[in-house]
Design a binder for these strands. Structure first.
Length: 197
DNA sequence: TTCCCGATTTACT
DNA sequence: GTAAATCGGGAAA
């Protein structure tokens, strides 16, 4: 069952970031289905978060997607090399988003290996935001797509394994001044597919 | 139009 | 541990 619109429309992006852990992110791309369990997320708290692209209510062509109502993907090109995928949350006008930083592959591992040019499955397949997007075939074309559609979506797992959540500061946001220290990064304890434990 | 630099990854030393 | 790869967004001019 896909997560419904109400899951994403909530205003508490930190709560949504925590609840996305353990959920399953799917894509249908290149005629292939692939999916992984979300193991690591980061919350970006809209206009008041100095680490957020929408800090200070910045509205540009790129950030406009974040201002839409929750339940769509925000995919952006970083360092001229990588695509990073976010889950937009909150009501229209509130530009909150959750960065999906890592996943444990569960479906379509063969096609993920081809996309990543790897021989065998290992955490290197998807233990980082750029790697995860590459593994799932996510490109800029996914920007703005509904998470209730046929190309990218999120489901609750069939069987729920209990897990502990580790809370840390976010990564790669040294420009965010005092907001560098906000406890907005979450990952599943003892999970191998984590970007930087 | 110019300039700086980034929510990263990978290959080296 | 350090550095290169690589290009578009955003602010300033």
């Amino acid at each position: 069952m896909k997560l419904d619109k109400d899951f994403y429309l909530r205003e508490d992006v930190v709560l949504v970031a925590r609840e996305l852990l353990g959920k399953v992110l799917y894509t249908f791309q290149d005629g292939a289905l692939s999916a992984g369990i979300i193991t690591e997320t980061e919350a970006y708290n809209g206009i008041e978060d100095k680490a957020s692209h929408a800090y200070g209510n910045r509205r540009t062509q790129r950030t406009e997607v974040m201002y839409a109502a929750g339940g769509i993907a925000y995919v952006y090109f970083c360092y001229g090399l990588h695509h990073l995928v976010n889950v937009v949350t909150g009501r229209e006008g509130n530009p909150q988003a959750v960065l999906v930083r890592a996943m444990k592959p569960v479906l379509g591992i063969d096609v993920m290996l081809i996309r990543r040019k790897m021989q065998r499955n290992s955490p290197l397949l998807s233990n980082g935001p750029g790697k995860l997007s590459q593994a799932l075939g996510i490109t800029g074309n996914f920007n703005g797509l509904s998470l209730l559609g046929q190309q990218i979506w999120i489901e609750a797992p069939l069987v729920n394994k209990p897990f502990e959540i580790v809370t840390r500061t976010r990564i790669g946001i040294d420009y965010a001044e005092e907001h560098v220290y906000l406890p907005y990064r979450f990952y599943i304890k003892d999970e191998k597919y984590i970007s930087k434990p």
